[in-house]
Amino acid sequence: MRITIKDLSHSFVTPEGKMKKVLSHVDFDDDISTLSLIGPSGGGKSTLLRILAGLIKPTEGEFFIECKKTGFVFQQNGLFKHWTGLENITIPLEKVHKYTHTEALERAEELLDRFGLLKDAYKKPSELSGGQQQRIAIARAVAPRPNLLFLDEPTSALDPEYTVEVLDMINELKDEGLNFIIVTHEMGFAKLACEKTGFLSETVLSQGARLIEVGKSREIFEHPKEPIVKNFLDKILMW
């Protein structure tokens, strides 16, 4: 799937009324199936993901994604709190994707059953563990069969045991041909499960982050070209 980003910049207005540049002249042009975005905290990864997903408009620049339907998974609290897990999946299918109620129910049950979530279908998010919530959020995002899924640190709010079940689920969906872009701190997952990896960070020279290096995951992790990437990986992989 072709993704093109041209000279994209984004600034936020801070509560004090100043402009804060978060992304600065991001360029990208590549075919991807699965891409992980890594980089230091506050580096603008979430911002870039939300722009690509159409949740916010960039202040400058443009991008093209060759696909019609996308899905999004938030770090946490992305499920609608007043609906059960099942309703979280069926109502968007009915209201947005024009499924009939029966079709929506069938699709939701098929997914929930497959990922062992059927027994939680009638619970509200507040009655579910973080891991269950995230897996239902992923089920909701893939239910309308999107061509591309965006995931923003889907496991960073979870305990290790739940992290594994969520990453397993994503990996399983990948094996079925789902394309995704994931922001993650799980370096193992980025390296082993994602075809490509991009490193997003500010540099000493620029205010606002750029994509410093993009390439095959293995290469980035084993032979990073940019010193700043190497530094980051050395630090993060020390433990």
Binding site: L55, F74, N77, G78, F80, K81, P92, H97, R140
Partner: peptide
């Protein structure tokens, strides 16, 4: 109201009135 809920609504494709 949690702002994340409105963002989630946007993410699943709800219109403003929805």
């Amino acid at each position: 109201l949690a702002p994340t809920q409105v963002e989630a609504a946007r993410a699943v494709g709800f219109t403003k009135s929805q």
